[in-house]
Every structure is written in C-alpha cells, then in structure tokens.
Simulated assay, not measured.
Amino acid sequence: MAAGVTPRGVALRALRLVSLLVAVAVGALLLVSASPVDPVRAYVGADVAALGPEQRALVEERWGLGEPPLQRFLAWAGNLLRGNLGESQVYGEPVTTVLLDRAAASLSLMAAAWLVSGVLGFGLGLWAGVRRGRVADRVLTWWAYTLASAPTFWVGLLLLYVFSVSLGWTPVCCAAPIGTLPGEAGLLERLHHLVLPALTLSVVGVSPVLLHTRQAAIEAMDSDYVTFARAQGERLPGLVLHRVARNAAAPALVLQLASIGELFGGSLLAEQVFTYPGLGEATTQAALRQDVPLLMGIALATALIVFAGNAAGVLAHRWVDPRTRTAVAA
C-alpha cells in the first residue's frame, strides 16, 4: 500500500471532501443571494426596461429566480446528486459542457506554468543556496521577495506592455488568432498565444519554490554529511548534484504540488488580463450576469482542484520523506 494511504485515511479524506464541497456550495449560494445585483437585469441586460411584469415573471420562472434561496439550493442539490449541474444562463449550455470546454484551456495554461515555475524555481533556488551571501544569492533573493508581493494581474499587464505592445513578439489576447476558433488554430498558433499567460503565472510562481529550495540547500550545505564529503575531496558540482539537490527536491516537490490551488486562483486573474477563454473569463461573466448554476459549478470545480493539490502535496511528502511513511494518515 502506498505510503500513508490506509482505508481509514481514504475514508477521512472522502469525508473531508464531501464536507468541503457542501460548505463551498452553501457559501457560494449565500454570497450570490446577498448580491445587490438584480438577477433579471443582469440576465436581460440593457433591454430590461422594455420588460413588462408578465415577461419579467417568465424570466424569473425560467431560471427559478423568484424562489427562496433554500428552495433553490435544495433543487440544485437534488439535480447534482443525479449528475446534473444545471444549464448556464450566459452560454445557454449545460454547466458540465461549459466547464469541460473552459477547463481544457485553463488546465493547459496551468500545466505549462506549473512545470516552468517548478523547474526554474528549483534550479535558481539551488544556485542561490549554494552561493549563499554572494551577489547571485542576493539578487535572486531580492527578486523572489519582490515577485512574491507582486499581484498576478500587475505582472501580466507589465509583461503584456513589454512583449506585446512594445516589442510585438507575442499576441495581445485570446487563445488563438482573432477570428479563429481555438479548435481551428494550429498547435504553433495556440502555443504562441499561451506563452505570455503561462510566463506570467510562472514568474509569480517561481518565488516560493526558489525561497524554499534555497533554504533547503543552505541546510544541506551546512550538514555533517556534506562536510564529510568535502573532507573526502568531493567537488562542488558532485555535492550539489548527488547530495544537496536530492535533499532539496523533497520540499520543492511538496510545495509545488500544494500550490496548485494558488496557481488556479492566479490563472483566473491572468486569463482576465489576456482575455484567455478559460475558467477565469467564465467566472467573470457568470458573476456579472448572476449565472448561479455556472457559479456553483465553478465553485465546486475550484474546491476539487484545491483539495486534490493539497492531498497530492501531503502524499508526495510522505513518499519522499521516509520518516513520515509510517505515519498514520490524517
């Protein structure tokens, strides 16, 4: 059986997941119900003034807008148990279809950013830790702390101005050339439009991995086994590759897996900056137009992604650290 994976641990995690989804669903509905935005006005738009009482009643009946929040929640929960997330008011399609279409774009963006930020952060963190106190360490540490406090949308706007507006190297927006559907665009065209949003998320995500890897590398360089290896004549490249990197890889991997939820939140902001057709754009449209079924579906999908990332981080920690392999699953 995998490290830390027991029937009791699986049952506890399943119970936590169910309770998390219930809490997220209730909280999302309460927030939407407390919104001052008129759902009929948000749905109809500028033509709401032309609606008569009968037409307004039809719209409310069509989407259940006139029902009490508790009744709406129970009806939605009953449909959810049957595998039906409802129909999106904005897109006129089943919520499941909208989520799957939009998630494909968001997940490709997140995967590229996750891989680049992990590899770059680990490599730079090793370099900074091994060169502790030198110019390279100071520059990288300052850069990491600066980026750690920088909002994702600010970094995205800065990169957009530099690479798209000033240099003209990357597209200004979208996941495909304007006038072309994403499914009709070629692979190189999609990658070209993916570069800048992924770079934005990567630049922001590098900071925590770099700082944690740097600290782990410093501790490894100060350890007795590295001191003994140096006394035996082992040179720095071998020390870093065979001893320091192996010990620093564990916290970097755990942190990178646990940051999937944060990466997902950052991707929502990056998608707004670059008008990237992922879950971020769908979330904004659903919020502005009070699309309750889509908002509820996105809230559940977000909770699942965050929960999966945190669970993967815990399991990875138990796998890479032998001292925790006998621990009872929490």
Rank of each mutant, 00 (worst) to 15 (best):
A282F: 03
A42R: 13
V273I: 01
I305H: 04
L126Y: 12
P293Q: 00
L147S: 05
R62A: 06
A198E: 06
S35K: 10
T326F: 06
P68I: 02
A11L: 15
L191N: 03
V240I: 13
A220W: 05
G129A: 06
L21W: 03
P69L: 05
G83R: 01
C174T: 12
F228Y: 14
W319D: 01
E54S: 09
R132C: 01
V155M: 03
V273S: 01
W142V: 00
A136M: 06
L17N: 11
L100H: 09
A299C: 06
D47T: 11
A49R: 14
A185M: 10
G121W: 02
P293L: 00
L100M: 14
V37A: 15
V162L: 15
A14N: 03
A46M: 08
A198D: 03
S164Q: 08
A128T: 00
A327F: 01
A75K: 14
L158G: 01
I178F: 15
F274P: 05
P208V: 10
G133Q: 00
N310Y: 02
P39L: 10
L288M: 15
V116N: 03
A217H: 01
V130G: 01
L65D: 04
Y161M: 14
A299D: 07
A111M: 06
V162D: 03
V204Y: 00
R41F: 11
A287E: 06
T302D: 11
P53W: 10
P36C: 10
G266P: 08
Q89P: 03
L29Q: 15
H192Q: 15
R289I: 09
P94W: 11
T96H: 07
A311D: 12
A50W: 10
G266T: 10
L115K: 04
E234A: 13
V5C: 01
L181E: 15
A248T: 07
L294A: 08
I298Q: 11
V44R: 07
E219N: 14
G313D: 11
L21K: 04
L257E: 00
P94T: 14
G205S: 15
A14W: 06
G233V: 05
A105C: 05
V32D: 13
C173Y: 15
R235Y: 12
G266A: 10
A287I: 13
L241E: 09
G118F: 15
L160E: 04
L294N: 08
G156C: 05
T152Y: 13
L120Q: 09
T146I: 06
A103T: 07
L211N: 05
L70W: 05
T200F: 05
R214A: 00
W169G: 04
V314P: 00
R235L: 14
E234T: 15
G27T: 12
W76F: 14
F307R: 10
G313T: 11
V59S: 02
V254D: 01
S35P: 07
Y145P: 00
T326D: 11
F153I: 14
G52D: 15
P237W: 10
Q71A: 15
L196I: 09
V273F: 02
V119W: 09
P177Q: 13
L85R: 05
R235F: 12
G45P: 02
G280P: 06
E184T: 06
D47W: 11
Y43I: 05
L210E: 01
V240A: 08
L269A: 12
V203D: 05
F264P: 02
P293S: 01
L191R: 02
L255V: 07
D137S: 00
M221A: 13
E234Q: 12
A11E: 11
P277R: 02
N84Y: 07
P7R: 04
R82N: 08
A175C: 07
